[in-house]
């Protein structure tokens, strides 16, 4: 374990209330740079709410979300909104229900994600409209990057098809590719393995490990598929009813009676221990 100084994301005392409902209560955890952190928990545990706070959809009721870049720059995500989360803090995310631009081609989907790079190169639109050389070369680089990711996702031959025509598993991979095209420091994946079969989720594992290895991207993921979580995570945070109940390595979390209790829905830890012993 590295010291807390090498955390890319530090969540401290995060609370999110909707009226009387506490979706997330006083949650603190950190995600380390270059590591894969998984956020797990039963349905309704508040995982997606945490993601929505990180990506600026919700303004947290209380707490602090601090993101630190490798160069030491820090951002308080709860104070950034909208496109600035991506532009300044370099956080990208995918959704549980896929949100591709279905009517646009695969390539265009990936180019939209490179908006900020192209925006700088295009001199705020006007140079781009008249086709200045600096912009055309930036556009070419953007296309190269998009093609690189399409190639990695084995979708290169379908680059000019509408994204909505892809099969479900391909759409999931395209969404990850699109997030990666924005060159994020932190990649947040909301149930990337949902709806994938065993072979596909195996491929997803390899993909995520490769992304981390090749690009050093830190990954925060919400996942129900334990074959993914246990296989690739360096660190697992378990939520139940908006509260953290366990935090540690996959092995540690797997054997935590509280986690088992939460997942099995049994009344207390003693029963969970009994169940676990029964399993052995």
């Amino acid at each position: 374990m590295n010291g807390p100084s090498d955390a890319i994301l530090e969540v401290t005392h995060l609370s999110m209330r909707f009226g009387g409902i506490v979706a997330v209560g006083d949650l603190s955890f950190s995600a380390e740079r270059g590591k894969i952190t998984a956020l797990i928990g039963p349905n309704g545990a508040g995982k997606t709410t945490v993601f929505n706070c990180i990506t600026g959809f919700y303004k947290p009721t209380a707490g602090m979300l601090q993101l630190t870049h490798a160069d030491g720059k820090t951002f308080l995500l709860e104070r950034l909104f909208d496109y600035r989360i991506s532009k300044l803090a370099k956080v990208a995310r995918t959704f549980q229900n896929i949100r591709l631009f279905a009517g646009m081609t695969l390539l265009e989907n990936l180019l939209v994600a490179q908006h900020n790079m192209l925006m700088r190169a295009s001199g705020m639109t006007f140079l781009g409209l008249i086709g200045a050389p600096a912009f055309t070369s930036a556009e070419r680089r953007a296309i190269d990057l998009a093609r690189y990711w399409l190639d990695r996702m084995h979708l290169l031959d379908r680059a000019d098809e509408a994204a909505g025509n892809l099969a479900y598993g391909d759409q999931r991979r395209l969404e990850i590719a699109r997030a990666m095209c924005s060159e994020p420091a932190l990649l947040c994946l909301d149930e990337p393995a949902a709806g994938l079969n065993a072979r596909e989720s195996g491929a997803l594992n390899e993909l995520l490990l490769a992304i981390r290895a090749d690009h050093g991207t830190s990954i925060l993921l919400i996942e129900h598929d334990m074959s993914v979580v246990m296989e690739i995570s360096d660190h697992v945070v378990v939520l139940d009813h908006g509260v953290k109940i366990a935090d540690g390595t996959p092995e540690h979390v797997r054997n935590d009676p509280k986690v088992v209790a939460a997942y099995l829905g049994v009344a207390d830890e003693a029963t969970a221990v009994a169940v676990m012993e029964g399993q052995r």
Binding site: T55, F57, D82, Y83, I85, S86, K87, A92, R93, F95, R99, F101, A102, G103, M104, E108, L111, V112, A113, H115, N116, L118, M119, S122, T125, G128, L129, E139, R178, A179, S182
Partner: peptide, 29 residues
């Protein structure tokens, strides 16, 4: 041409389809 081929056109089409997602990818909607 602007709508089909330029960055601005792409951003416009992306915003038309899903404004929140476009913003998440860094597009100033």
């Amino acid at each position: 041409f602007i709508v089909a081929r330029t960055r601005l056109g792409r951003d416009m089409r992306a915003c038309a389809q899903d404004q929140t997602m476009a913003a998440l990818l860094g597009v100033d909607t």
